Amino acid sequence: MADSDTRERLEPRPVTEETVLTVDDDHFVPESVCLVTGGASGIGRAIALAMAANGLTAVATDVDEDGLAETSDMAADMDARGGVKTVVGDLTDDGDIERIVETASGHGDLRYLANVAGMQHIDAIEDFPMEQYDRMHDVMLRAPLHLAKLTLPHVRATDDGVGAVGNMASVHGHYVTADKVGYNVSKFGLRGLTQSIAAEGDGDLRSFSVSTGYVKTPLVTGQIPDTAEQRGLTVDEVIDDVMLGQSRVKEMMDPVDVANLFVFGFSKHARHLNGGDLPFDGGMTLTYE
């Protein structure tokens, strides 16, 4: 495959009015707030933009201040019906987590929380550095629980108690691959958190998770050239054989595709999605040859 085609395979579709799913929901108004972690890039950025395009006030948080500013500028360029506010914060710091939720609630009725922020480290279990495991656990599992703990009272305090927590899980929350124990454990745990929130909700306050295969995010695409060099493969061979070998759909998802699942999941059209998981993995985990 030509280099230009290869680059195109790794280039995500932009988040625009044409690519974003828009739905009719009385709660999708600027007075409603959706807090999104990992909002400086990738899936988190796409969710913040998609929720703003649907009329809500999205509050994007991340440690990357410059990336957050870009997300806010992109929302302005889209002329989104809502808007994107930003708050810089470190999800490994409890004080920052409390400040993030307090800031978000100051922009309106905090109804929705999208736990997206993630990280990756690859090592065999016997070589896996525990300090890295602890950091992954803090960012990808402990912080989502803490954020949910602080967000749920705000949802319950709204006039009708309607809201939801959406958690970014993964195919690795269903089955695992070697050398990713920190990621695997966190994603399995997120599904448990999702079900725990549903168990303690009243039907109007819901939770759900989204499990995708490989998505065109900096976290994923940045690893591909190194993997190709390490294994003596082309970039296309890494995509087709290593990453998508078990998938029936031979292309990676775009961040906006994932954002649209969150739009649906947060909306009234998903009122029976409570504690459940949306497995959009191209047939990776549930089929075999």
Rank of each mutant, 00 (worst) to 15 (best):
A2V: 09
A2P: 04
D5W: 08
E8P: 01
L10F: 06
L10P: 03
E11P: 00
E11G: 07
E11H: 08
R13M: 09
R13G: 02
T16G: 02
E17H: 04
L21N: 07
T22Q: 14
H27W: 01
V29W: 03
S32H: 02
C34P: 00
V36Q: 05
T37I: 11
G38T: 10
G38R: 06
G39P: 00
G39N: 03
A40W: 01
R45S: 05
I47R: 04
A48W: 02
L49P: 00
L49I: 12
L49M: 05
A50V: 05
A53F: 02
N54H: 02
A58K: 12
A60N: 03
T61Y: 09
T61I: 12
D64R: 11
G67D: 09
S72N: 14
D73F: 04
M74L: 15
A75C: 14
D77F: 00
G89Y: 03
G89P: 00
T92S: 11
D93W: 00
D93E: 13
D96I: 11
D96C: 07
I97S: 10
I97N: 08
R99K: 14
R99C: 13
V101D: 09
T103W: 04
G106M: 00
G106L: 01
G106T: 01
G108R: 02
R111C: 05
A117V: 12
G118L: 13
M119D: 14
A124Q: 11
F128Y: 14
P129T: 06
M130E: 15
M130Q: 15
E131N: 15
D138K: 15
D138P: 03
D138L: 15
R142A: 05
A148N: 06
L150W: 10
T151Y: 03
L152K: 06
P153E: 11
P153N: 06
V155K: 02
T158P: 01
D159T: 14
G161L: 06
G163C: 07
A164Q: 06
G166T: 05
G166W: 00
V171P: 02
T177L: 14
A178R: 09
N184C: 08
V185M: 15
V185A: 15
G189L: 09
L190H: 06
L193F: 03
T194K: 08
Q195L: 04
Q195D: 01
Q195C: 02
S196K: 13
S196E: 14
A198W: 04
A199D: 15
E200I: 01
G201R: 09
D202P: 00
G203S: 12
G203W: 03
D204C: 10
R206M: 11
F208H: 10
V210Y: 00
G213A: 08
G213Y: 01
V215H: 08
L219H: 00
V220R: 10
V220M: 10
V220T: 13
I224D: 10
P225N: 07
R231Y: 05
L233C: 06
V238D: 05
M243I: 13
G245M: 07
S247G: 11
V249Q: 14
K250M: 14
M252T: 05
M253A: 14
N260I: 05
L261C: 09
A270V: 08
H272D: 15
G276F: 00
F280S: 15
G282F: 00
Y288S: 15
